[in-house]
Design a protein around this nucleic acid. Sequence first.
DNA 1: TAGTGGTCTAGACCACCCT
DNA 2: GGGTGGTCTAGACCACTAA
Lengths: 245, 245
Amino acid sequence: MAAGSTNETTKPSSKLEHGIRADLAEGRLAVDRRLPSERELAERYGTTRITLREALSHLEMDGLIYRENRKGWFVSDRRLVYNPLWRTDFQRMTREQQRQASTELIEAVSAVGPDAICELLETLPGTEFWRIRRRRRVDGRLVVFVEHHLSKSVFTDILEQDLAGSLTSLYRERYAIEYGDVFFEINPIALTGMPAAELHCSDGTFGLQIVRVNRDQTGRILDCDVEYWRHDAVSIRIDTRESVR
Amino acid sequence: MAAGSTNETTKPSSKLEHGIRADLAEGRLAVDRRLPSERELAERYGTTRITLREALSHLEMDGLIYRENRKGWFVSDRRLVYNPLWRTDFQRMTREQQRQASTELIEAVSAVGPDAICELLETLPGTEFWRIRRRRRVDGRLVVFVEHHLSKSVFTDILEQDLAGSLTSLYRERYAIEYGDVFFEINPIALTGMPAAELHCSDGTFGLQIVRVNRDQTGRILDCDVEYWRHDAVSIRIDTRESVR
DNA sequence: TAGTGGTCTAGACCACCCT
DNA sequence: GGGTGGTCTAGACCACTAA
């Protein structure tokens, strides 16, 4: 049982959860930001792994800790504040929050858009787009997997550009395009398949899906991004007093 | 990826999950919208309850089914499309989506605002507000618990009004107030305590917290809402081509 | 190769819901 | 009161990671 915690709940798993919560708060469990192994924790708190994992799942859902697939449990950092209406690039956004970002290009190919994407981009089913897949880290941690679908007619030679950098800058500097209206959708979902694999989380981990459709200043549809966020890494904030950009 | 694909996974839980997924898709499990008991399902799929619950949790996180505390598992309906920038009342919003809404008043009292709320409302810590707690259903299902904190000086006699109806209408008709700017924040979190209890979900169920600060047309802060949504019941959508109201 | 997380078994007891 | 979900035990094997 954790020191200092005098929780009166009778459920072992609650006591366990509160014990770990206290240990996290007081830094006893933040060694290297990785928690001790499940077997060690189970023994330390006098319970079984199943029960321990139940408690850890609660803390995970609450955003205090997260899992790296087959690697273990880690202490979560503060959430990144994200406004899907901002048109500043990711690097700058993170820098303004005293965080450090990096982007990795996974693939960039021409591919037929799934029906849902074609509909969002107002094209016929079966239309081909540039499909760019990337993932981003904040302070070293993988937090979001992004799939971009770009109009092939607008961005004819995009594959020859540096796709690990900011697309926003590329649009402006290479194609003289400024963003106009945006549509976006936020869905709480389970991360599975490629997003889960790329984010190193186990299949079924909870996440946030953000779908965006971007237009230029003339209203022409440019592209569509589908983002898959680790749920504990992000907080969406929008203020209408700010400019929409 | 492809619909109806035969999954080759060897893991029992994945087969289980896909089996249930197919049964849901083809209506074999939607009897009364409530699933058979866990023991019956475990037997039907030839596994134990623990493993079955693991699979059900995945489907829950994916938004296909949900739990009512101690009552069982139910098939989720389609998500309600919600735009926190819209100023139409809840009834009208649901009606436009061919859904039916109802609101229940839980309590309406004067109470000291928590520090975080006072900060959002730009008042000194310890300031009192009208605290109104309500919960809402869509097509009969409990989907959101809301805590409103209203300025006592602006809404002097609000406790005498009908608080199970639309606050938007009340503002306009009783106080001649129109909404102005909005700030809001969306956080994926675990539902615990009162929100979980009021929504009849078990402690630790995944949910979406939406915090809103509303101003009137002159920029004066009116109130703050804290909403706790069942995660599978909502999809946030915003389009800058629409008017902000 | 040792240890880890991921998964699974086959039970059990309790509090609570519904009838 | 019977059945339900919520919780828990005490093991086990496997695939993978890290050394």
